[in-house]
């Protein structure tokens, strides 16, 4: 297992460097920070001071080397807007995003396993119809539409829930999580259903029945673990989307997470913060992928053997 982890870490290094460089150059395409931060009436002298103070007069290659050197020593530079350390800002925003992502994923996984298994076990039942409805919705309705309609109905018209922010306690979680959960729930339910349909018709399920195993045992014990691998793959993909793609939902609901911080940094040409955010999400996605691989190995001994071979 340690050999496997080491290999994964090494193979993750190259894409990580690519991500770093990509963000560095793309961020600089969005415009010159000096124009944004200084008033139009700034004197050339003021402008020169700003540029020198932030190292913007060096060639882009020198800036890149400075930046990469900083990353190696875990120094991501300071925010142009607040002067605070970029790494600290990213790390402070990250938990809010992770909490949102994990609660969403938990609901999606539990819901998908229950509805998907039930739909597979009883084709054409109520659960089967719910499952088709969910995946249709997930595939066809964009999340910003859900967010806006949700705010309009439940926050503005009915006044039951806050329109945005995190200060409302549990109530402030409802709309963001409900908006985010629709896509993962719809997609995962369909995946679980498909995997369970094939698992339930497998010979090992017949064998279990011939030993007198009841319905619940057949579904939860014999079929579900076999159906778990494809669901895990898709759940991992969706989780990646939640970690770095909650930008829209975080912006609409004023959620102080990494998505919102990224958008704000782009709009403010705050390169250091943007780069720290992207690197943080990239690293967490690599970690997530390794966790998924470990999950496969825990589920199935045949994978374990391949990994240790």
């Amino acid at each position: 297992m340690t050999g496997f982890l080491r290999r994964r870490a090494v193979t993750s290094l190259l894409p990580l460097i690519a991500v770093l460089l990509g963000v560095f150059f793309l961020a600089r395409l969005t415009g010159d920070p000096a124009n944004l931060y200084l008033p139009v009436s700034a004197t050339p002298e003021q402008r020169q001071n700003f540029i020198e103070a932030n190292g913007l007069d060096d060639s882009i290659w020198v800036q890149m080397w400075d930046y990469l050197g900083g990353v190696l020593t875990l120094d991501f530079g300071d925010s142009l807007r607040t002067g605070e350390s970029a790494a600290a800002m990213a790390l402070r925003a990250f938990p809010a995003t992770l909490q949102l992502a994990f609660s969403t994923m938990l609901i999606a996984v539990v819901g998908a396993v229950v509805i998907g298994s039930w739909a597979a076990y009883r084709p054409n039942s109520v659960a089967d119809r719910i499952s088709s409805f969910l995946s249709m919705t997930a595939a066809s309705v964009p999340d910003f539409w859900f967010a806006i309609v949700g705010v309009w109905i439940f926050a503005v018209s009915l006044g039951w829930l806050p329109t945005s922010g995190v200060t409302g306690g549990m109530a402030s979680w409802v709309l963001p999580v409900a908006t985010l959960v629709i896509r993962p729930l719809g997609v995962l339910t369909q995946v679980v259903r498909g995997a369970m349909v094939s698992a339930l018709s497998a010979p090992y399920v017949r064998l279990a029945r011939s030993k007198g195993a009841g319905d619940l045992r057949v579904v939860t014990h014999h079929a579900l673990r076999n159906a778990a691998a494809p669901a895990l793959t898709v759940a991992g993909d969706l989780m990646v989307g939640l970690i770095n793609g909650a930008v829209v939902v975080e912006t609409i609901f004023g959620w102080p997470g990494i998505g919102k911080l990224m958008i704000d940094s782009i709009l403010g040409r705050d390169f250091a913060v943007l780069q720290a955010c992207v690197l943080l999400t990239a690293v967490s996605i690599f970690v997530l992928n390794i966790l998924i691989d470990i999950g496969y190995a825990l589920l199935d001994a045949r994978v374990r053997e391949k990994v240790s071979a």
């Binding site: 010979p203 673990r225 076999n226």
Partner: peptide, 18 residues
Amino acid sequence: GPELAIVFQDALTALNPV
């Protein structure tokens, strides 16, 4: 199980792989 049991033909697919 206690009164009636069956041995299937294809033992690889009949056993649960996990």
